[in-house]
């Protein structure tokens, strides 16, 4: 009974892998370049601040600790904030999801397969990136257990990011342009997740507020796990991620049920 189901998934994942790697240069430009530029800018900014003013410590970060933090944000960004689901809104508006209403494979399944395929590619990109960072002496070698724990948590958080993006995409049943929501969420994530400035440098009141949001999970927490400076148990962090993922998935399910009633399949 499970056999055909697994076959559907593996076939779709393999198809997605081929599709995503067809235009390799475009893939690199769209998915590797943005986090690389972001981390290069923040790395340069922090190096300049520490070096020019001869500052020893800012918010508990020494120069080396801050620069290592910035390097690991690049790895976290590659794993967590990479999936491109911007086709979903276009698929809905142009009536292309009709096929999924007829196929023996759901729309969510197709997008989840694409997400899994993407994460497989990103794991290779991350392996190369970590090796390069270590070889360039930008980050020290970390214990294998810490690396494994960081990677596992990042992959779990990637599922959370996928759930949010899928939810935003589904709003295309009502909205003409859903890129706006994704763009704003992305901007807020870069600012509030500690991707540019570590959360430890935010005012105390904001740090407390952010604890009740998913933002720290999207950069700060996985980076601290990689750095080995995280004080919370990984199990607790995983439960937090699962809570937000479940919430986003439930919302997506609700939105799908409401939205599909409005859907008129063009081309039929």
């Amino acid at each position: 009974m499970l056999g055909p189901e697994i076959l559907k998934w593996t076939k779709t994942i393999s198809l997605s892998l081929t599709r995503q790697l067809t235009y390799k240069f475009d893939f690199l430009l769209t998915l590797v370049l943005p986090p690389l530029v972001l981390v290069s800018v923040s790395y340069a900014l922090w190096a300049e601040i520490f070096d020019r003013e001869k500052i020893k410590e800012i918010g508990g970060f020494t120069r080396d600790a801050m620069l290592r933090y910035q390097c690991w944000t690049f790895i976290a960004a590659l794993l967590v904030r990479g999936h491109r689901s911007w086709n979903l809104s276009e698929d809905i508006r142009f009536g292309r999801i009709t096929a999924f209403l007829l196929y023996p494979f759901t729309l969510w399944g197709a997008y989840a397969s694409e997400f899994i395929a993407f994460q497989i590619i990103q794991l290779f990109v991350v392996a190369v990136s970590i090796s390069a960072l270590c070889l360039l002496n930008l980050v020290p070698m970390i214990p294998l257990a810490t690396l494994a724990s960081g990677l596992a948590l990042s992959l779990l958080i990637a599922a959370l990011w996928f759930s949010f993006e899928f939810l935003f995409g589904l709003l295309a049943f009502w909205l003409e342009e859903t890129w706006i929501l994704r763009y704003v969420f992305n901007l807020l994530t870069i600012t509030l997740s500690g991707a540019f400035i570590p959360i430890e440098l935010f005012p105390q009141w904001l740090q407390k507020v952010l604890q009740y949001t998913p933002f720290p999970l999207l950069t700060s927490i996985p980076v601290h796990v990689f750095l080995g400076s995280n004080s919370q148990p990984t199990l607790y962090l995983s439960l937090r991620v699962l809570f937000w993922t479940a919430l986003a998935s439930l919302c997506a399910r609700y939105v799908w049920r409401r939205g599909i009633r409005l859907y008129s399949a063009s081309g039929i």
């Binding site: 235009y23 475009d26 430009l29 370049l33 943005p34 530029v37 972001l38 800018v41 900014l45």
Partner: peptide, 21 residues
């Protein structure tokens, strides 16, 4: 020259990130 089209726009956007500072 790039087949997908979005790649060039992403390069452009990254240049904006650089000139932001």
């Amino acid at each position: 020259w790039t087949k997908g089209g979005d790649g060039a726009n992403f390069v452009r956007m990254q240049c904006q990130q650089i000139q932001r500072w």
